[in-house]
Nucleic acid binder design. Structure first.
Lengths: 372, 372
DNA sequence: CTGAAAGCGCTAACAG
DNA sequence: CTGTTAGCGCTTTCAG
């Protein structure tokens, strides 16, 4: 049953009066391209051009067991793939394009309930998978995936034996951010860590705690308010804190576990007539593209998301190729990417912009505007 | 040459001691599932479960001429797929997921030079294509695509006969934005239209002009500065204007053809110590996710990008299905989407936030800060 | 150097 | 109701 009306190799061959395989050899430039005489070769090329022949990727894929397609699985948060995802994706697309790979995206709402969709996703249609911030990859699930295709993770929550994972220096980044605030004179620094059951959040909490301890500031768990990695969670938690605390017990600085939370906080602060950074300082984490778009621009810990995307794609492509040629070369020195290493740690950097300054001389009084 | 180690239908059949096709019928639930006795059926299911058999999507795709994959082609601007693209993508992913379709992304840097990549992209690996803001689709190129797969466009620059295109009411949106500024008391309103060779930009310019005319304000082409649809272009054009104009000839309001331009402008305005909206008003276009993340939040014309993404995917899926069953039903009333219609126009809406207000009583004097 | 075969994994059409 | 056969479009092997 021929479905589409695009010319096939058979059509070209018929038209040129040669056999399919001659056309195949000519048109894909297989190793022995000298196997066809110049006359037939030219005739085939001419016919192919006239018919606008293009090889069918699926047929080739079935045969080769490879489609030149990398799959990306990412979480949608409240219906949206957020900027964080977006920047990683940019990196992946860049590397994929450079290596003539296509990119396919699967968005999942929750990891637990989507295992079947993910498994289906990798049944032949992708050569490998990149998981972006998977919540919980159950070991059996990870095994099931690996049976079909290799995969790598970015911000994996729990490390999986033999699986390469990209991580940023969460602990160090948090430490830097808090140290910066302390140096500015802050002593009461709140922390919005996002989801504390995520290992990244916990590492950031570690950095926050270590910095306080090293500066002789007592840890106050009323200043640490968990939530989610979203704008609206930032709004909610900030509002809670503003309604709960009196002016005197209110923090002079906020460290947020990502930029979205920071923006949510800032939105609420504005509603309460608190000026950033005069009345209160805010520091984020990630340095997503919109971090420099607020006024004042967000002071934040830069995580090289794009680079992490690039590297994950490079790693994956490497794994796919290695699998393809596993029997041919046992020499692992071919690649510049060390295969044994199971975690790529990326450095972070504090980007000082305009949302953090010295604490106010007098306690400020938050007053809610009636409506914005 | 068997490439992967995943169990195949043949494996299941062998293990269960039945013929391949029995396994096929049982495991995919084809029309006559009663064709197999319960005993064999159970045995097959049991074996399939034990072996963790999953059908190979590529093999099925080759046979059916359909992979359940929709392709999205978008432009990268300065190395980034921007928020605009991102929101449309969210809509596409949503509808794709609802219809059990996968989504594959191809990012192109320039449309002219990427025609081959696009053609290659649609050789079997996608069932249809969504073009996001294609610059110039040459007629022959469009024909070539259509030979392989159906496609739809979003913000197509020139309409292509028979191709469904999603557009927003650019003219009306621009009119609304400018009318709002005029109502606030502004008479000197600058317009940053982005690329004027794009039809969308020109329609926005029409709306701007019409509104000025209807309010008896003379059109001054010194106030209309073309550029690109980017943050950095907003910065550049704004800086140019600030350096060029004296305080007295400086506009009191800015209408920007998208949010990115508006943010770029605002960044420069801040550098020149101009306060938004006290000294100068700014209105954007699009209402991308980060529009509400600046402080003050951006007043902008909302384009339902997500909805446009959803609709484009729905349209495309419809076309793909129609193509699949073209010989079977000639009855076009099946679908709720009218097939003949070649343009979907989406309404826009002015979202009033905090970046526009009345013009200042006295002309303001921009003064550049030494460093930010 | 050329031709004929077989087969990737799956399904749709046939005979039995 | 079962089993066989052919084939989606392409490539690789093996004879000629």
């Amino acid at each position: 049953m021929r479905r589409s009306n695009v010319p096939t190799l058979q059509d070209v061959a018929n038209e040129a009066g040669v056999h399919v395989m001659a056309a195949s050899v000519v048109l894909n430039g297989a190793r022995s391209s000298a196997r066809v005489s110049d006359a037939t070769r030219n005739r085939i090329m001419e016919v192919a051009a006239r018919l606008q022949y293009r090889p069918n990727a699926v047929a080739r894929g079935l045969l080769k067991g490879r489609l030149n397609m990398i799959g990306v699985v990412g979480t949608v948060y409240g219906g949206n793939l957020d900027v964080y995802f977006h920047e990683i994706l940019n990196g992946i697309l860049e590397t994929a394009t450079d290596n003539r790979q296509n990119t396919s995206i699967l968005s999942v709402h929750d990891w637990e309930g989507s295992e079947d969709r993910v498994l289906e996703f990798c049944d032949g249609r992708v050569d490998g998978l990149i998981f972006i911030a998977p919540r919980t990859l159950k070991p059996e699930f990870a095994k099931a995936i690996q049976r079909s295709v290799p995969f790598v993770t970015i911000h994996s929550n729990a490390s999986i034996p033999g699986v390469v994972d990209m991580e940023a220096d969460d602990e160090g980044g948090a430490y830097q951010a808090v140290q910066y605030l302390v140096a500015l004179g802050h002593r009461k620094i709140a922390f919005f860590p996002g989801e504390l059951y995520l290992s990244g959040s916990r590492r950031r909490l570690e950095g926050y705690k270590r910095c306080l301890a090293e500066n002789g500031i007592a840890y106050d768990d009323r200043l640490v308010i968990p939530g989610w990695y979203t704008y609206s969670s930032g709004q909610d938690r900030m509002a809670e804190m503003l309604e709960r605390d009196s002016a005197s017990s209110f923090p002079t600085a906020l460290f947020c576990a990502n930029d979205a939370i920071a923006f949510g906080c800032m939105e609420i602060l504005a509603k309460y007539r608190l000026r950033v950074p005069d009345d209160i300082s805010v520091v984020g984490f990630d340095d997503t593209l919109n971090a420099c778009m607020t006024i004042p621009a967000l002071t934040t810990v830069r995580q090289p998301l794009r680079e992490m995307g690039r590297r994950s794609a490079a790693r994956l492509i490497d794994l796919v190729q290695r699998r393809d040629t596993r029997s041919l070369d046992t020499d692992a020195t071919q690649s510049s990417l060390r295969p044994g290493q199971t975690m790529d740690m990326f450095p972070v950097e504090l980007i000082v912009r305009g949302t953090a300054g010295p604490p106010p001389a007098l306690p400020v009084i938050p007053r809610l505007l009636e409506r914005n």
